[in-house]
Design a protein around this nucleic acid. Sequence first.
RNA 1: GGCCUGUUCGUCUAGCGGUUGAGGAUGCCGGUUUUUCAAGCCGGAGACAGGGGUUCGAGUCCCCUACGGGCUACCA
Length: 527
Amino acid sequence: MVRTRFAPSPTGYLHIGGVRTALFNWLFSRKHGGQFLLRIDDTDQERNVEAALAPILHGFRWLGLDWDEGPEVGGPHAPYYQSQRLPRYQDAARKLLAAGLAYRDFATPDELRLERETAEAEKRPFIYSRRWMAETDAQAKSFEGQGRQGVVRLKMPREGKLLIPDLVRGDVEFDWAREQDHVIQRADGTCLYHLASVVDDFDFEISHVIRAEEHLSNTPRQIFIAQSLGYPLPEYAHLPYVAEPGSKNKLSKRKIAAYLKNPDFKKVYDHGQGIATALGLTTSAETFNPVIVDFYEQVGYLPDAILNYLVLLGWSLDDKAEFFSRDEMIANFSLERVGKSPASFDPKKLWSFEDKYMQDLPTKQKVPKLIPYLQQAGFLPKPVPCEVGPRLAQIVEAAGNRIKTFGDILSFTSFLTADDQIKYDEAAFDKAIRAPGAVELLTNYRTQLATVEPYEVPRLETFSQEFIAAEGKKIGELVHPLRVALTGQGVGLGLFDTLAILGRESSMRRIELAIYKAATVGRGSVT
RNA sequence: GGCCUGUUCGUCUAGCGGUUGAGGAUGCCGGUUUUUCAAGCCGGAGACAGGGGUUCGAGUCCCCUACGGGCUACCA
């Protein structure tokens, strides 16, 4: 049975690189008909774990990465919180001690530091002398008599080599002699990460440890612990890290300010920020930032698009395939085809996947997703009136690929406001409506619009063409002022779609209003 | 410093000694379409980090250098 796990720390946010690691674990387990679990690495934080975990679990659910065991779903190996498993780790430490594969150590921090500095000064690698090692109770008593406090250290081999077969990187060789006698249990009895991690992976019957490459160097000490405890070894696969946009430096959520100098990153960020503002969200760099998954949910990206982008970040099937449904990802994923080199996070390429996926999403699936955005921004009441659905469908159809994230619907809210509540884009108004002849043209157009039959897109188009020909003008001279009059904005949907969606009455009222404003309100103060 | 690890177009990647005058995607540039914007369509520029080997032949194997990343904690 293949069992994989992802082990987040409860930090309050889900990092895009972490999602990639989780995704690979999830895909691998699903591909082999196995199970995927979540384990919480909270050995360090005592405070508010539940609150800090909630956004992470929420992110997993939003992305559709389900877990078979872990927080909120439980499972046969509960608890899945490291902070609640201390007795297991202490038990393991006792066994290691009893087998002579670990020892109690009474060195003070200062003594250790001195050894380390001496080694450094002599330009030789530091290896602890084990001078304050206590292998018998008598020795321990004697050290304790001096007021010293004991920790438990691994008694690492000091010769020989270790070969780690890694499913991504091939065989990796380490010298045991370079490994430190790591502390596995503190003087206060609490245990450290490496011990906890190995014990949990065994207890949870993890078959494949798929994790970030920063753990590759940690693997020898973990293998030592596992072997010393008589555990079977899992398979290992170390994934390359996710790098910054446009560079090979590791991606970090703390460096957004620097990333914003990257035009592509900034474009994606600004787009999201615009939607957040329209929604009235208070955003903080902690969570509202393209490095954090929350960002994409709030702006209204499609989880499938994000997953498709991420699966290609370090994995590929061949030289052609780029679009994968969830099932296709599962069917095709393999660790053998995971790359060894770091991959830069490119928000612009993610954007292109989002664009494509949104284009493929049928209107009737888009509409219900759009409604919460319109409600949040105050354009729709909470129980939605039933006539809104068809109207939104009409807008969505006309908007076509202009809606790239669900939040983009907020660019088309002029269809949902009262005719006299239109907000004009000043520059567009001044340029189009105050253009020479524009008001006169709009006046004539409005008059004739009253009798156009049927009031539908094809007829509106031919009517407009005929009208403009009769006036001896070019179509652009009508289109631009008319669009501003109808929507308040210089850019928008196709003009005939706009007329049709608004309907005859609204269209005429809006044209009248624009004409009136042009006559009565000065430049730069229409709104 | 020591050890481990990585390096093909700006970016994601294909390539597992010869079929490669290095393929695809994204981005960029140009053209086309057009009522704006977006999309679409057509075309273009763009890479094997550097240096040594091995071989009849190297992006593909080996070594060195440079530059990333990790570990070297009583962090995870």
